[in-house]
């Protein structure tokens, strides 16, 4: 028996070995090294004869007083709130709708999932042309709507989506939502499958109408799924980089017109790799990590109150 236990330990660790080495070398070490860098004045191209100096909290203090960072943070939060709302709520409603016994259920599910699998860069380039102010289909549709329904009175007009700092972030939100809705919907559909059908029968016998069924059975019982979707969507929103990069990064390393698409990750990418400021970039990355960590913790706490894990 003891020989078997020993064998188990040897076999267990041998099987884990590749993974352990990988995690230590390419996750744990860089993570700690980044924490160290955040407290120094290291440059990406550090001259060999200049030692790296320890500067305490200087990078963090600088970040919070820095206007560009504040803007990046504001942009990211604005983006996250909007993108989260529009990719979670419609996804939930769609999942409820498609979960009906309707013809083509799996067809629609597959269809909405297509944008999820396509490369962000590839689809962002297409959207870039759809948003074009001169020949884009979006303005074509807006013009048609305006001329058909006289919407100019409420201010619906074709605009330069990607050329105007006021609208650029809207374009980023549209592309992100378009790419995420199907993903969230599939998770919601899986959650809906898990709800006990008898509850609906009971509600029907009790004469509940469909809004009561939706708001008193479906939504509360779906809350663990909703909670999961909200957290994962928020976390991926806070890290958004490739959509704004592909839509609006300029040759002069501006993120869209007047830096209007600058997100936190875009900012730390630019500081670290274009402006040569490794240490400041690391500090920014740690601020982002702490924000994400805090949101996760708060949401877990809150979830104990409103999530129904029954």
């Amino acid at each position: 028996m003891n020989a078997r236990k020993l064998r188990d330990i040897v076999d267990g660790y041998t099987m884990l070995l590749p993974t352990l080495v990988g995690v230590l070398a390419f996750f744990a070490f860089p993570l700690l090294y980044s924490l160290y860098l955040a407290f120094t004045d290291a440059k990406l191209l550090q001259p060999a004869d200049v030692p790296i100096k320890f500067v305490g909290l200087e990078n963090f203090v600088f970040a919070f007083g820095n206007e560009t960072f504040q803007e990046a943070l504001y942009n990211t939060l604005f983006f996250s709130v909007m993108a989260m709302f529009f990719s979670v709520v419609p996804a939930l409603l769609l999942a409820v709708l498609i979960n009906e016994k309707i013809r083509g259920q799996s067809f629609f599910r597959s269809l909405y999932f297509v944008p999820v699998v396509a490369s962000v860069v590839g689809v962002s380039l297409v959207w870039k042309f759809l948003f074009n102010k001169d020949f884009g289909w979006i303005n074509l549709v807006i013009e048609w709507l305006r001329d058909t329904f006289y919407l100019d009175v409420i201010g619906i007009e074709p605009v330069s989506w990607l050329g105007n700092a006021k609208y650029a972030m809207t374009a980023v939100i549209v592309v992100f939502v378009w790419k995420t809705i199907g993903y969230n919907m599939v998770i919601f559909m899986a959650g809906l499958q898990g709800i006990n059908k008898q509850l609906y029968e009971a509600a029907s016998i009790d004469g509940a109408n469909r809004w009561q069924t939706l708001t008193q059975i479906t939504i509360p019982l779906l809350s663990p799924t909703t909670f999961f979707v909200v957290i994962t969507t928020l976390i991926s929103c806070l890290q958004v980089f490739d959509v704004p990069y592909a839509l609006g990064w300029t040759r002069g390393n501006q993120a869209g017109p007047a830096d209007s698409m600058l997100t936190t990750v875009a900012h730390l990418y630019r500081e670290g790799f274009i402006n040569n400021s490794t240490s400041y970039s690391s500090a920014l990355a740690w601020i982002l990590t702490l924000i994400i960590f805090a949101i996760t913790v708060i949401q877990f706490r809150v979830s104990n109150r409103w999530v129904n894990y029954d």
Binding site: L16, T19, V23, F26, A285, I292, F293
Partner: peptide
């Protein structure tokens, strides 16, 4: 080890960009 491993999922990739590049 398993719970530590799951913890890696919570760390945003952005924090690894710079140190991984240096590595």
């Amino acid at each position: 080890l398993f719970s530590m491993y799951l913890g890696t999922l919570m760390v945003p990739f952005a924090v690894l960009l710079v140190p991984m590049y240096l590595l």
